[in-house]
Amino acid sequence: MAIETVLETESLQKRYLLGNVPVDALCGVDLAVSKGEFLTVLGPSGSGKSTLLNMLAALDTPTSGTVRIAGTDVSTLSDSQRSLLRRKIGIVFQFFNLIGRLDARENVELPLSISNTPRLERKKKAEELLELVGLNDRMHHRPNELSGGERQRVALARALAPNPQYLLMDEPTGNIDSKTAKELMDLVETLNKEREVTIVMVTHDRSLAKYARRTLHLLDGKIVKEVSK
């Protein structure tokens, strides 16, 4: 059976200007993620892993090389088309990035509201997802009334709301305690196994690598090692 590649990069380079000094965040990354895979990109801070994730999320454009999301070269897309593409991607950030004045359910509903899902439908969906992440009694709490772990679970529910083909996670356990982190990762693992959600996670935490079937080690913008289970 042919393995379907959903995310792909070729000779991916990204150069930033820090003031006047050019910084190479990514120096030729070749990567392919298959459908249903759970991939971890491990690397110390400054290795370029967040930049890589932003590329895969169509949030950033490469200096050279290509990023293909579901077979589409991102650099050929207009700003508006990239926005539409992002609606198919679930993303979980290290700092949760929830909207403070909206409660948990409204935060989960937000991507559905952006993609014009009717109100009742998105409300039902948000409630289902909050139940899935174990927050059914926290639906009307605002982010500042939730613990770090709870916030990250809201963020996960939000990322899952548009039924994404893949889920990108940037240091998802970076701001939560280890016990809550384990619960979250167990949940993510279940999602990957039972719902066959493709997952790409970037982290500096080696202990999280055990959840993934394949781990890439990133250093100074290059993939230096690949480990598969």
Binding site: A57, L59, D79, S80, S83, L84, L85, R86, R87, K88, I89, I91, N97, L98, I99, L110, P111, I114, S115, R158, P162
Partner: peptide, 11 residues
């Protein structure tokens, strides 16, 4: 940034 990351178009 969040709105854009969630797929909101510029307009």
């Amino acid at each position: 940034g969040i709105l854009k990351a969630l797929g909101m178009e510029a307009r």
